[in-house]
Design a protein around this nucleic acid. Structure first.
Length: 807
DNA sequence: GATTTTACGTA
DNA sequence: CGTACGTAAAATCT
C-alpha cells in the first residue's frame, strides 16, 4: 500500500527515507517503529533528543519496491535515471517540502541524497549542508539510512552526530552565512605583514597546513589565526617559483621563527613536520596540537580525515573537491577548518579528560619522525644473495611440482589452488573460519588449510606448495624491495595506530572503516622517502638478515619480557603467575631455566597437575598454546589446529585451564560489565577507548585484548620518548616494534646502551587492584637484524625506579 | 583500469 | 568465531 508523509504541524525537521519496507507496506506508516529500520530511526532520534511527534517523516518512494530493491524504480544500474513512477514520487516530495516548509530536510541514505541533490555517494556528501536541487534554497543535510547502521554498526556514531547537527540547524531555514575570511591570493608584502602580525601581536596557537607536489616540493602553505581567518601563500605555480630566491628566503626565515615560537595546530602534522624537516631543514618545534591525534584519542574508532572531522565539528561548506581547481583556496580552507576542528576537539578532550593521553602522544611525534627520516640500512650484497637464493629454491620447487602433476598451476592463485586441491586431488574441502554461523561457508586454500590437509594425507606435494608460497611471499613482499640511493629503507610510523589513507598506484585510497587502534604505532610506506617494503613491523626473520647497522656498530634489541601476560596476570590476580614474574625479574635466561621459571611450563604444570620439573618440551608447547588461546578467548579450533589434536581434545584442555584459573573468566565478565555501563575501558596508563562495535562476542574479544595490548603499547612508547629525550644524542635508536626498541651501538658500549635502554623502559605500572609492578626487559645483540643472540648485559649503573607516570 | 578479495607477515 | 596492523597478487567489476 502507499505510504504517506507524516507531518505534525510546525515540524522544523523533515526526514526523508528511501522506500517503505515490509512493515511499512502493511501499515502505511513510514519507518514503522517495529521494523528494524524504524527501531534504529527511533534510537537515532532519541540520541539527538528528538521525538516522532515533532518531526516530519516520509520516503522518496511511496511504495515498496519489488524484492525491496530500490533499483527497480530506475532505468539504469547506477540509478541516475528514474522510471516515470519514481519521477512522480520525487515531484510529490518536492510538493511536500514546499507544503510543510521544514527549516531543514534530512535525507537518509543514497536515494534521498539523489532525490534532493541529484548527487550519489552518501559517504562523501553526508554531514554537510548541501545545495538542494529539488527545492532551491531549501536547507538540507544528508546522512546514512538507519537500516545501514543495522548492518554497519560503526556508522551509528557518525549518524547521531549528523542528527545533532540537523537539530542545531533547525532553528532557522536560512543557511548560516560563511563568516570566514579566506585570503588565498595575498601579495608578498601582505603575507609578510601578516606573518609579522602573527609573530608580534597574535595570541594563541596558529593552524598550519602545507601542500606538496609529487616531487616533494612545498608549493602552498596556509595559516589560520582562528577558525574564521585564514591566509594561504603560493610558492610554486606550475612547478616554477613565484618569488626570487632572496625574497623566498626572507619569508622562510620568518616562517621558521614563527614555527619555533608559536604553538602550531595541524591535521596529521607528523607528515607536514617531517616534510619541512627533511626538505627545508625547518624543525617546527611549536607543533604541539593535532586534530587527527585528538580525534584518535577522543573517538578511536571513527574516521579521521579532515573532511570527516569538519563534517562533524563545523558548519562549513564542502571544500575537499576543490583541491585541483582552486588549490590555494582549498589550502586556506584546510588551515582555517583545522583551527575550527581544534576548538571543537579541545572541548571534547576537556569533557572526556583526554589531555594527558593527548600530550603524551604529541611527544611521540619527534622520535617517530626521526626514525622515518633516518631509515634503516640494507646491505645490497646480502639482499642480492637472499633474493637469488630464494628465487632459485622457489623455481626449483615450481619445476618439481610441474613434473609431478604434469601441468601449470599458479600456486599464488587461490582459485587455481582450490581447484587443484579440491577438484583434482579431491581432498576434503577446507572452509574459512566464519564470523557468524549465519555467514555462508567459503572454501579456502590458505596456509592453515594446507597444513591440515598435509597432516591428514602426508602428501608431499602439499608440503612443496606450502614452501613455494612461503618463498614467493618472502620475495615479493619483503626481500625484492627498492632501496634508497643511500641503500636505506624508510617507514612512516603512524602514532595514531592506523594510516589515514594509503597510496596505491599514485592514488590515495581512504578506507576509513573499522579502525580499532589501541595506542600501538603502525608502520607504513613513507611518502617522503618511499623506499623499502613500507611496513617495517612485519618483516619476517629470514628477511631481517639484510638489515645492517652503521659502520662499527651492532644491533641491540630491548624487549619487554612476556609483557601482555604480565599485565593480564596482575589484572586477574593469578598469584602463581605473578610470583613467577617477581621471582624471575632481573634474572638471566640461564638462571630462569635452572629454576624452572617459565610461564609456559607453569601453565602446563598447572594444567596437567604435575610438578613443574616434570614438564617436558612437548607439554610446555601445549601450555604455551593453551595460554595463548585462553588469554584472548579463542575457540578450541585454534589450539586444535596448532597442536594437531581433535577439537574435543582441545576443548578439554581449555576447560582444564579455566578450571585451574577461574579468575580469567571472571575478569572477562568484569570487562563485559564495564562495557555495559559506558562502552568505555581505560588502560593502566589512562588511555580511554570507547567501543562502537555491535554488542556481541566480537566486541567482547576486542575489549579483552584492549587492556594488555594498549597498556604495553603505551608503555613502550613512553619508554621510547624517555629514551629519545634523555639519550637521543647518544643512543642510535633504530626501530619500534610494539614491545621492543631497537638501537645500534658500538660493541664496547653495549653494556652502557643496554643500561640506559632498560632505565628508560623500567616504568611502574599500577594494576586495577593497586599493585605496583615493572615489566622486565630482555636483550639481544647481533651483526644484523636477523642474527640477534641473547645478551646478558653487565649494567653500568643502578636503576632508578622512581619514575612518575604522567596520568 | 579501478576496486575488492584473499592471503600472509609481525606484535 | 584471538586481536591489531599494512601490503602484494589475484579476482572481479566497470
Amino acid at each position: 500500500m502507499r505510504v504517506e508523509t507524516i507531518a505534525p504541524p510546525g515540524a522544523k525537521i523533515m526526514f526523508v527515507g528511501e522506500a517503505p519496507g515490509e512493515k511499512e507496506d502493511i501499515t502505511g506508516k513510514p519507518f514503522h517503529p517495529h521494523a528494524p529500520a524504524g527501531k534504529m530511526f527511533d534510537k537515532l532520534l532519541a540520541n539527538a533528543r528528538l521525538s516522532r511527534y515533532e518531526v516530519a517523516v516520509t520516503n522518496v518512494a511511496k511504495e515498496r519496491p519489488p524484492g525491496n530493491k530500490i533499483g527497480m524504480f530506475f532505468e539504469d544500474k547506477k540509478m541516475f535515471r528514474p522510471k516515470p513512477v519514481m519521477q512522480q514520487w520525487v515531484e510529490e516530495l518536492r510538493r511536500d517540502i514546499i507544503l510543510y516548509k521544514p527549516n531543514i530536510v534530512v535525507g537518509l541514505g543514497d536515494t534521498a541524497l539523489w532525490a534532493l541533490t541529484g548527487e550519489r555517494g552518501i559517504t562523501a556528501n553526508r554531514g554537510y549542508i548541501l545545495q538542494c536541487e529539488l527545492v532551491p534554497k531549501q536547507k538540507i543535510l544528508c546522512t546514512f539510512h538507519p537500516q545501514k547502521i543495522n548492518y554497519e554498526w560503526h556508522l551509528g556514531f557518525t549518524t547521531i552526530m549528523d542528527f545533532r547537527k540537523a537539530v542545531r540547524e533547525s532553528d532557522t531555514p536560512l543557511v548560516k552565512p560563511d563568516s570566514r575570511s579566506l585570503n588565498a591570493f595575498p601579495s608578498k608584502r601582505e603575507f609578510i605583514d601578516y606573518l609579522g602580525w602573527l609573530q608580534n601581536s597574535h595570541d594563541g596557537p596558529i593552524a598550519l597546513d602545507i601542500e606538496t607536489t609529487m616531487t616533494g616540493h612545498l608549493d602552498i602553505l596556509g595559516l589560520a589565526a582562528n577558525a574564521n581567518m585564514g591566509i594561504s601563500f603560493t610558492f610554486l605555480k606550475g612547478g616554477k617559483p613565484v618569488l626570487r630566491p632572496s625574497d623566498e628566503f626572507e619569508i622562510w626565515m620568518l616562517l621558521a621563527k614563527l614555527f619555533k615560537t608559536k604553538s602550531l595546530i595541524m591535521h596529521n602534522g607528523l607528515f607536514d613536520m617531517a616534510s619541512m624537516w627533511w626538505y627545508l631543514g625547518i624543525l617546527a618545534t611549536g607543533y604541539n596540537k593535532d586534530t587527527m591525534v585528538a580525534t584518535h584519542i577522543c573517538w578511536p574508532e571513527t574516521p579521521r580525515s579532515l573532511s570527516y572531522l569538519s563534517s562533524i565539528c563545523l558548519s562549513v561548506p564542502k571544500w575537499k573537491h576543490t583541491s585541483q581547481s582552486t588549490p590555494s583556496i582549498y589550502n586556506c580552507e584546510d588551515a582555517t577548518n583545522t583551527y575550527g576542528c581544534w576548538d571543537f576537539m579541545a572541548r571534547e578532550m576537556d569533557n572526556g579528560e583526554h589531555w594527558d593521553t593527548f600530550n603524551f602522544e604529541m611527544q611521540q611525534v619527534w622520535p617517530a619522525s626521526m626514525l622515518q627520516l633516518q631509515g634503516v640500512k640494507v646491505d645490497p650484497e646480502k639482499q642480492k644473495q637472499i633474493v637469488n637464493n630464494t628465487k632459485t629454491e622457489r623455481n626449483y620447487i615450481k619445476k618439481e611440482l610441474l613434473q609431478e602433476i604434469g601441468h601449470e598451476v599458479n600456486w599464488n592463485s587461490p582459485q587455481q589452488l582450490q581447484a587443484f586441491l579440491y577438484e583434482e586431488l579431491k581432498l576434503p574441502v577446507q572452509y574459512k573460519r566464519r564470523k557468524s554461523c549465519f555467514d555462508p561457508q567459503k572454501r579456502t586454500a590458505d596456509k592453515e588449510a594446507l597444513s591440515k590437509l598435509f597432516r591428514k594425507t602426508k602428501n608431499p606435494i602439499l608440503e612443496k606448495i606450502m614452501r613455494y608460497k612461503k618463498l614467493a611471499k618472502l620475495i615479493s613482499s619483503f626481500v625484492d624491495i627498492q632501496l634508497s640511493p643511500k641503500n636505506r629503507v624508510h617507514t612512516s610510523y603512524n602514532i595514531t595506530g592506523a594510516t589515514m589513507s594509503r597510496t596505491v598506484k599514485n592514488k590515495v585510497v581512504d578506507d576509513e572503516e573499522n579502525y580499532q587502534s589501541f595506542g600501538r604505532w603502525s608502520s607504513s610506506k613513507s611518502i617522503i622517502l618511499p623506499y623499502g617494503s613500507g611496513n617495517l613491523q612485519n618483516i619476517p626473520k629470514s628477511a631481517r638478515k639484510m638489515y645492517v647497522p652503521p659502520k662499527k656498530k651492532i644491533w641491540i634489541q630491548a624487549d619487554y619480557k612476556q609483557a601482555e601476560a604480565v599485565v593480564v596476570s596482575y589484572e586477574i590476580l593469578d598469584y602463581p603467575m605473578i610470583k613467577l614474574f617477581q621471582d624471575s625479574f632481573g634474572l638471566t635466561k640461564e638462571e630462569c631455566d635452572e629454576r624452572n621459571l617459565d610461564i609456559h611450563k607453569l601453565t602446563a604444570a598447572k594444567n596437567f597437575r604435575i610438578p613443574i620439573a616434570k614438564v617436558t618440551e612437548a607439554l610446555r608447547d601445549i601450555g604455551k598454546t593453551i595460554r595463548h588461546a585462553t588469554n584472548y578467548s579463542a575457540g578450541p579450533a585454534v589450539p586444535a589446529a596448532r597442536l594437531g589434536c581433535t577439537i574435543n581434545q582441545a576443548k578439554a584442555l581449555l576447560e582444564s585451564y579455566h578450571s585451574g584459573t577461574p579468575q580469567l573468566r571472571m575478569w572477562h565478565k568484569k570487562i563485559q560489565d564495564l562495557l555495559r555501563k559506558g562502552r568505555t575501558l581505560t588502560n593502566l596508563l589512562g588511555r580511554k577507548h570507547k567501543f562502537l562495535k555491535e554488542w556481541g562476542d566480537e566486541l567482547f574479544r576486542s575489549a579483552y585484548s584492549f587492556i594488555p595490548q594498549s597498556t604495553v603499547g603505551d608503555l613502550l612508547n613512553l619508554a621510547l620518548v624517555r629514551l629519545y629525550e634523555s639519550y637521543g644524542d647518544q643512543v642510535d635508536i633504530s626501530l619500534q616494534l610494539h614491545d621492543a626498541i631497537y638501537a645500534w651501538t658500538e660493541p664496547e658500549l653495549a653494556n652502557w646502551t643496554a643500561t640506559v635502554m632498560k632505565q628508560s623502559m623500567l616504568i611502574p605500572l599500577t594494576s586495577t587492584h593497586g599493585e605496583v609492578y615493572y615489566i622486565d626487559v630482555d636483550f639481544k645483540v647481533g651483526p644484523t637484524w636477523g642474527e640477534l643472540k641473547d645478551f646478558t648485559p653487565e649494567f653500568t649503573q643502578e636503576f632508578d625506579l622512581n619514575y612518575e607516570v604522567p596520568k
